[in-house]
Amino acid sequence: MSGSIEVRGLSRTFHTTVRRPGFTGTLRSLVDPERVAKHAVQDITFDVAPGELLALLGPNGAGKSTTIKMLTGILTPTSGECRVAGVVPYQERERNARNIGAVFGQRTQLWWDLPVRESFAILRDIYEVPKAEHAARLEEFDDLLDLSSFWDTRVRHLSLGQRVRSDLAAALLHDPPVVFLDEPTIGMDVVVKEQVREFLRYQVEQRSRTVLLTTHDMTEVERLAERVVLINHGRLVLDGSLDDIRRKFGSTWQVRATLADAHTDVVPLPGIAVLRRDGPRVVFGPDGPDAPTVHQALKTVIERYEVTGVAIDEADLEDVMRAAYVHAEAV
């Protein structure tokens, strides 16, 4: 089954009642409520190919979760359309449910009073997974997530890391081709985060699952995502690779080169400016909107000049995303 996600002009508007301030205002609101429209998602279009991991990024309140809820079929769009594994999620909820798995942050779908394994068994019955298949998949997940060390423990007694690992397994027990993860590693320690990332990488690379991930953890994005969609105020700001984002918002790199001959004439190169020079030591930086990536700039400098030493300083993804968010706010 193809695990593609197609999103075309997707929009969702919520209508809420605004409470006027003060006692009189509150009374007025009861009699004459003022309704306002909030455009949570506006005209978003993107695709996710089968077996691809896409990071859906944006600041808080950007519309990421609303988008995921439309793609999971919980929410019906105001306009536009989407297909997940060939199914229109909000029109065929039950069919869509068999094609998708989902984890929403720290919200667990496991039963609080039951041992983890009992929760898995109930989900097995709900999704009608044959027992042998269920056992084999559980064994596979145990190898990756070390579930057996706590799966006989009641969910209420699990640590956050154990619970999220259990939730990840629960979301994939029915072998869905598409997985939605809404901030799955929020609040977890670095060791468990890495374990979860390994698990996700395995699911994408070995099991060809399509994963749509939202996170504020840029290390996670860097380690996992092939492509990024950035949204803000419900609008799509950028759809591209991490390099694209760096090129557009992360032009804060510097290439520090030591020339073999201190008297060499140094001239600006296409998209590369000379920021400083002190004898043989030259600092290059990006010049203009068409500046190359740091790696391209490094290659150009080395090809153009004879250098005895070189070092690069590059803004990390946190800085890049901060710049992207600031840029998105300004648009």
């Binding site: 079929g73 039950e94 919200r107 667990t108 779908q109 709900i126």
Partner: peptide, 14 residues
């Protein structure tokens, strides 16, 4: 309250 009601709508069992 906890938002876990969404999972009731994500399963093939209505």
């Amino acid at each position: 309250h906890f938002g876990t009601i969404v999972y009731w709508y994500l399963r093939p069992l209505p």
